[in-house]
């Protein structure tokens, strides 16, 4: 165990490779969402038939779900704080809060998608539908993966040994992922919902 612990401090970059891996992954995710956002903007205003964004987007409701995701980021950062300062109760409680807030956000999205579907907008209706569902759908998928990621940490933290020696690293790295999903939504909310159509 002691040898394994030593290894993480002697990388050629001077940083832990697992954390570096997460940052490299997030850098690649910038490109992933960058292309989807570009596509949305290029298609914007090109739809031949309705429903069009100005007719169907529910801005007050989405503002609420945006607030929920923002609060989940706050809970996540407090979970990381708990992990780093040995406050395990805070860490577990805030991990649970982050998971629940993430699920609430997904609930809002399911409701939104179903409402749009019943109003006649789907992936093939028009260019708005195609680019909107692909962009927000992939974001929702990331939130879903994040929920599984955090749940696995929460379950791990309840074992006898908890998350072990690298506890703060595991929670910190998961936090990076979760905050990234939040900042992608910051951009999506502005570009899709708030910008004039």
């Amino acid at each position: 165990m002691a040898a394994a612990h030593e290894v993480q401090h002697h990388t050629s970059t001077g940083v832990d490779n697992r954390k570096l891996l997460m940052w490299v992954f997030l850098a690649s995710e910038c490109l992933f969402f960058g292309t989807l956002i570009s596509t949305y903007l290029i298609f914007k205003g090109n739809s031949l038939v309705g429903p069009l964004p100005e007719e169907i987007l529910d801005i007050p409701l989405t503002s609420l779900s945006t607030f929920v995701l923002l609060m989940s980021s706050l809970a996540m950062v407090l979970a990381v704080y708990g992990a780093q300062h040995g406050q395990l109760g805070l860490m577990k409680g805030m991990l649970l809060a982050t998971i629940l807030l993430g699920l609430t956000f997904l609930g809002f999205q399911v409701y939104e998608f179903r409402t749009f579907g019943s109003e006649g907008l789907n992936l093939t209706t028009n260019q708005f539908g195609a680019s909107f569902f692909v962009l927000t759908g992939f974001h929702g998928l990331h939130v879903g993966i994040g929920v599984f990621y955090l749940t696995s940490l929460l379950i791990g933290s309840m074992r006898r040994n908890g998350l072990g020696r690298d506890r703060d690293l595991w929670v910190d790295t998961a936090g990076l992922y979760w905050h990234f999903v939040d900042i992608v939504w910051i951009v999506i909310f502005t570009v899709i919902y708030l910008m004039p159509h």
């Binding site: 997030l26 850098a27 690649s28 490109l31 969402f33 292309t35």
Partner: peptide, 8 residues
């Protein structure tokens, strides 16, 4: 991170 962000 900036590398990915600037590229995007």
């Amino acid at each position: 991170f900036l590398f990915g962000l600037v590229l995007a």
